[in-house]
Design a protein around this nucleic acid. Structure first.
Lengths: 191, 191
DNA sequence: TGTACATCAGTGAACGCGCGTTCACTGATGTAC
DNA sequence: TGTACATCAGTGAACGCGCGTTCACTGATGTAC
């Protein structure tokens, strides 16, 4: 039995991985169950042996990709001087590389717009992930008297998410690079 | 003949108005042709006497709502001291009222996410409207040596768009208000 | 002024397609004896 | 060790529904004479 179980778990993991890719590239609606499955070399019908619904898969994919993104953003961040850590995160997020490689990036750009319209389940998962990111980022924000670190972190998150989303939306135009540059400067406090 | 033409133009305008509402509330995919038409008291089939396709309608609705939003954001802005004008715009955009009244607000939150996936036509319209907004906002940004006014304006736009979108996505949770507050502070330069 | 005809906005049903989900079936893996 | 049976991941076709678009038709408005 246990060989069978292992095999099933591996398949399940592969489905989730495929979903993570498609979700980030095409959004919730664009991550079709049939496409997710064919990304693993399987057919649609088998999906329901692993998940109760597409919704359940999407929730898991959001959590997974958000966690992965955090790892990337804060990777080896302690090696940088404390004063510039938040800026480093900002630069990593608002990079052309991140804009052009949606499949391995942040889930927010793919998910935020659709979430308002779909099930409240997704909304809660998203809120939880945003809080998580804010908490971790706040630890690297330099202290000030003006606001709390968490507030600054939330502002940065909105700027990062907004900047990447707009840059992707107009990708291919000059405006796209301009937006990324402007957001990096704005986040650094240059006015 | 001219009475007929006037009537048709009035109907067309009503269709566009209905589309503007639905587009901002539900996004491109959610603004169904049948719903747009029934919002004017007509049935689906008649739509194609006015527009070649849903795409054409959406393009027009994006332009219209973007223009309307600009009017609102910059309304009587000259009455404010020059030094705070950009902040006033920021506050107007990142308000709870704007978050809760999507039907009369900015089209970006409803459109940006979907645009990357759909036709390039929409992308160009969006890019044009973002530039327009940046241009107008830049005029009210206080001059600095650090960056251009346009860059600051683009940073502000990303922050505003990002803040409203995130706040709407998690609407109903405490996080939603927290995000708006944090973004207003961040935009003001409080760190 | 009245009558026959043309135009065209709007109707409502149908078409085609995409997509999530269901379901009868298969075949490989595991268990019982 | 071998044989009969059970389980269940995966198949592939079908179902149901939503949505953009098409199309034959209607009826009110306008034109020609």
């Amino acid at each position: 039995m246990s060989v069978k179980v292992e095999r099933k778990e591996r398949t399940r993991a592969a489905i989730v991985a495929s979903a993570c890719d498609l979700l980030r590239q095409r959004g919730i609606g664009g991550a079709r169950v049939a496409d997710v499955m064919s990304g693993v070399g399987l057919t649609v019908g088998g999906f329901y042996a692993h998940f109760a619904s597409k919704e359940a898969l999407v929730d898991e994919a959001i959590r997974r990709t958000a966690t992965a993104m955090r790892s990337r953003l804060f990777d080896r961040i302690e090696e940088k001087p404390a004063a510039v850590r938040a800026e480093v995160v900002l630069k990593r997020y608002l990079s052309a590389a991140h804009r052009d490689d949606a499949a391995n990036g942040c889930p927010m750009p793919a998910v935020v717009g659709e979430v308002s319209t779909t099930t409240p389940e997704h909304r809660d998962v998203l809120a939880e992930q945003i809080s998580e990111l804010a908490e971790e980022l706040a630890r690297h924000v330099v202290k000030s008297e003006a606001t709390t670190r968490r507030a600054t972190a939330l502002g940065m998150i909105a700027l990062m998410y907004g900047g990447i989303s707009l840059a992707r939306a107009v990708k291919g135009t000059d405006l796209s690079d301009e937006i990324l540059r402007a957001c990096r400067a704005f986040g650094r406090g240059e006015r």
